[in-house]
């Protein structure tokens, strides 16, 4: 008795089932989601990531930031993403349609970064934090990224981008030297600052709101 063909058919259909359901169906149903054109602003959203930030995203990828930082905000009432200030609203599929690589992430050893560009707008803070997280966030377990900076002799005018004056005394270079972000650091920070989902799409206006929160608001009125 040779049941191999029958077994093979079963094996084939088992995976074909989920391939159709998870991959194909979703590709058909929202795989060609379009940007929304806002007439009052004269722009379409989500906006294209600017060139420098797009290069910074590649740095974000090659350093493996995704393994500690997610980029997705969950709805109010599920998790504490909104309470933690990680976003004003939940992330929706349309937020990601301009990204050729979607970096949702699955770990939050560090905070979610989907809206880091909206909540930490200070470029210098970003540089210092990258250079040594202990400067801005004592007790953090994020690795230092000193290799994204260059220590060099000051020749002529000091660079306006130099950060050594803001470092703690022990970490400063000898006099006559300065610490400047490399191009990779600059593009990475540009990318981080570009991360903000602040535009309200039609679908984000009627998303789930926790009943308790709703009731609370009415009482206040």
């Amino acid at each position: 008795m040779n049941r191999a063909p029958l077994i093979f058919l079963g094996i084939f259909f088992a995976l074909a089932f989920s391939w159709t359901g998870i991959v194909l169906t979703n590709q058909i149903s929202y795989g060609s989601l379009q940007p929304v054109y806002d007439e009052t602003e004269g722009k379409s959203f989500p906006q294209q990531t600017p060139g420098l930030a797009a290069r910074g995203k590649l740095v974000y990828q090659d350093l493996g930031c995704i393994y500690c930082h997610s980029q997705q905000v969950r709805r109010p009432g599920y998790g504490a993403d909104i309470e933690r200030g990680w976003g004003e609203r939940q992330s929706v599929p349309r937020d990601y349609i301009r990204e050729s690589r979607v970096l949702l992430g699955s770990m939050r050893t560090g905070p979610d970064l989907r809206n880091i560009g909206a909540r930490q707008t200070d470029r210098t803070w970003q540089y210092l934090h990258l250079y040594d997280p202990q400067i801005t966030s004592a007790g953090s377990i994020m690795p230092p990224h000193r290799f994204l900076f260059e220590t060099r002799k000051i020749i002529g005018q000091p660079s306006p981008k130099a950060i050594q004056d803001k470092l703690p005394a022990s970490a400063r270079p000898p006099a006559g030297y300065e610490i400047v972000p490399t191009e990779r650091a600059e593009s990475l920070v540009a990318y981080l600052l570009s991360l903000k989902d602040t535009y309200a799409y039609p679908e984000t206006k009627n998303v789930y709101v926790e009943p308790a929160a709703e009731a609370g608001k009415e009482e206040k009125k």
Binding site: S18, W19, G21, R74
Partner: peptide
């Protein structure tokens, strides 16, 4: 064997619970 073959391959979506993907596919996962 057959129950593994049928159920396991839908389970992966549970990594996206609460994420920006359709709710029905999360529920299926």
């Amino acid at each position: 064997f057959w129950s593994l073959a049928i159920f396991y391959n839908w389970a992966g979506v549970h990594h996206l619970i609460g994420g920006p993907v359709p709710a029905w596919v999360q529920s299926a996962g």
